[in-house]
């Protein structure tokens, strides 16, 4: 029952996302036929292009065609390259997914321990330092951090490569750039959640039983503090998947975000619509997984 409801909800979300992106693109000033023909094209040439892209048909008809093709798994063709949008996405999507996952690993590896540490040292200098660090992490623009990392590790000391995704070392700098910002968010959430559980009676009981602090934190406190942390990780992963345009551009990453922005600038409607649809679907699936994970962590949660 839960799954049926969730699947139907996801379908609704996707239809909504497709409709919104379809409508918003067409409300945006700028004409795809003109964009494709270029600023110096003769008027008759622009009209030829418009006709060849079916953009001279009424918008309602374009919408019906788009939605019915979408239902069949056909997302149309790129106006510019005439490549099927599905192929464009297949070429870009894995790169985005891989970078998001490695960034999330960095974020979890840094953020969770930092948050726990800060919570344990509540009110002490270590707590303040940790939280200031995470504050810096949240506020630092990824563009600036990325540039800093490139100049330091790639140009000055030539330790790490920074362009493309063809070898494992290429992941280090972009993952750090994206991961550190997210780590800061996770650290703050972990701290807050840990503080709440560390004050609970069962933690005092655990301590009273003479358990080591490590066991108290790991088994009793963290497990109970995990639900909000997992939730924010799920949300942040969604954000990573959709919002890394700047980092992708900086590190020459052939990802989905850059594809969408490039296509938007060229008013390549079909590619933008396809990209947004895939992001929406990913977000929906991530939400579902997060729900399931929270349920596994805390059986009291009813789905």
């Amino acid at each position: 029952m839960y799954f049926l409801k969730k699947v139907m909800l996801t379908a609704l979300v996707l239809i909504g996302a497709a409709t919104c992106s379809f409508m918003m693109l067409r409300m945006l000033p700028g004409d795809p036929a003109e964009a494709l023909a270029g600023p110096q094209a003769a008027l008759e040439d622009v009209e030829t292009v418009r006709h060849s892209l079916d953009l001279d048909k009424p918008v309602a008809r374009q919408y019906v065609t788009y939605m019915s093709n979408m239902a069949k798994g056909d997302l149309g063709y790129s106006f510019r390259s005439r490549r099927p949008v599905v192929d464009e996405i297949k070429a870009r999507w894995p790169a985005t997914l891989r970078l998001s996952l490695t960034s999330m690993l960095v974020a979890i590896a840094c953020g969770v321990p930092l948050g726990i540490f800060a919570a344990q040292k509540r009110g002490k200098l270590a707590d303040t330092v940790s939280m200031v660090l995470s504050f810096v992490g949240v506020s630092m623009p990824s563009f600036w951090l990325g540039m800093l990392l490139i100049v330091c590790f790639s140009v000055k000391f030539q330790l790490l490569p920074f362009s493309g995704d063809d070898e494992a070392l290429n992941y280090v700098l972009p993952s750090l750039t994206l991961g550190l910002g997210v780590a800061a968010n996770i650290a703050r959430m972990t701290r807050a959640s840990m503080l709440e559980t560390l004050g609970q009676d069962y933690v005092r009981t655990a301590r009273g039983k003479g358990l080591t602090e490590f066991r108290v934190v790991k088994v009793h406190a963290l497990r109970n503090a995990a639900v909000p942390i997992v939730t924010i990780i799920g949300l942040q992963l969604g954000a990573l998947l959709g919002g890394q345009v700047v980092t992708e551009t900086l590190f020459v990453w052939p990802g989905l975000g850059r594809m969408i922005v490039d296509s938007l600038n060229a008013r390549d409607y079909m590619v933008v619509q396809g990209g947004i649809l895939v992001l929406a679907a990913t977000f929906a699936i991530l939400n579902l997984l997060t729900d399931l994970l929270c349920k596994a962590l805390d059986p009291r949660i009813r789905l």
């Binding site: 100049v151 920074f162 362009s163 551009t249 020459v252 052939p254």
Partner: peptide, 18 residues
């Protein structure tokens, strides 16, 4: 042809000989 959209990245790649 390597697609490097960010101007400063392109310059850095050239400087580092990539």
């Amino acid at each position: 042809y390597k697609i490097v959209p960010e101007d400063s990245t392109r310059a850095l790649l050239l400087e580092s000989g990539r």
